[in-house]
Write a protein that binds this DNA or RNA. Sequence first.
RNA 1: GACCCCUUCGUCUAGCGGUUAGGACACAUCCCUUUCACGGAUGCGACACGAGUUCGAUUCUCGUAGGGGUCGCCA
Length: 437
Amino acid sequence: MIRVRFAPSPTGDLHVGGGRTALFNWLFARKNGGTFILRIEDTDGARNTEEAQRGIVKGLRWLGLDWDEGPEAGGPHGPYFQSQRKAIYDAYLARLEADGRVYTEENGAVRFKFSRTAITVHDLVCGDVTFAPTEEPDMTIRRPDGSYIFHFVNVVDDIEMKMTHVFRGEDHLSNTWKHIDLFNAFGATPPTYAHIPLILNPDGSKMSKRDAGSAIEHSYINEGFLPDAVFNYLAMLGWTPRADKEVLTRQELVQLFDPSEIHSANARFDMHKCQWFNAQFLRAMTPEALLDAARPFMESQGLVIADDAMAAAAVFSVKEKVSLLTEIPAWVHYFFREDYPFEADVSDKLKAKPENSGLLRAVAGVFAGLKEWTEASVHAAIEEAAKGASVKPGALMPLLRAALSGQSRGPGVSTIAHLVGRESTLRRIDRALAEVC
RNA sequence: GACCCCUUCGUCUAGCGGUUAGGACACAUCCCUUUCACGGAUGCGACACGAGUUCGAUUCUCGUAGGGGUCGCCA
């Protein structure tokens, strides 16, 4: 039975690197019917807060990385907060003491005596990596105040929680021999390691907090990304599935996942490509799903949605024009209000020719006489009005678009008119004639 | 400084001794088109360097350079 874990320290917003580490663990567990565990490594009490932990949980939930054991999920190997496992660590320390593998310094810190033998890490990604007998000072595993250090609790918990595999960032590779030394001291078999490459900034520097695109909530949730798109992009940063396409669902990625295909070279983060994935998923959504996703961003911009069906159609009509949900309000705001501003180039266009007002009145006249108000009938009416005025529909469309939306770009003109309805369409034309032309 | 990992278009990558070195993003041009987009087509663009092994190296080995990481009483 495969058991893997994601073991973050609660530092606030989930970092993309951490998110991807969690993602690979999750992928491996789901692919093999294993168990995915969330363990909070909060041994450094000074800087770990409950609020910081909420950020981690929120980020994981948003990415859809559900855990089988851990905070809120429970499980037979808890507690899943290291700050609550002191008795277990004390017991393990006692074993080391009994075996003469530790010693206490004058100030009370406890150190683990390295075996000082060559140690080989068998890594799924990096292959066998052998470290020569170390010359480093013995490692501190307990502070004078009785709290324990990462390397120790990490190993103890991996033993206690029966981890079979450990997927973690490559920044841990250089320390892994210390962990194996500890596993050996406890007579335990180390898990199989897989050190995944790091995510770098576009300039090649290490990506850390504050760098663009580094925080799940701040850079993705709030910026209008879709979880599936970020999931897809992150999975393919350092791993290439054997598929003939790049846009893949969560289920497909689970099916395709193979840790031996994970690259060993670091990858630079490309926000452009991440947005491209987002655009792909956006376009594949149904009108209803798209509205659900866009609603908070629309409401935060003050748009009042009174009619869900109309709103869904409006949002759907601009879906291939945006790549982020945050861009949607600017493309659809006029569907939800009649006091939209006329952009500068739009009013210039309307004022440019004196005959424009006559053309708009002519269209309004035809609209007023229509028996039914469908997208097709509206479209036919516009063509009829153009014919009556001896101009091409292509000359009339931009004017109507300007009047109905205040913008020079957007979905089809007949789509706009149809969705806002006949009454609103006529009011909009009147307003444009009164205020602009 | 020591040790570890890494090195194909600007970016993500395919390649696992013989290829016109393929794809995606980005960029450029064209087509489509009532706008903005989408879509389609085309173009631009890479094997870090030096030895060696080999009939033949992007591919194997070694070295150099460059990038990243670790060496905490942080995780």
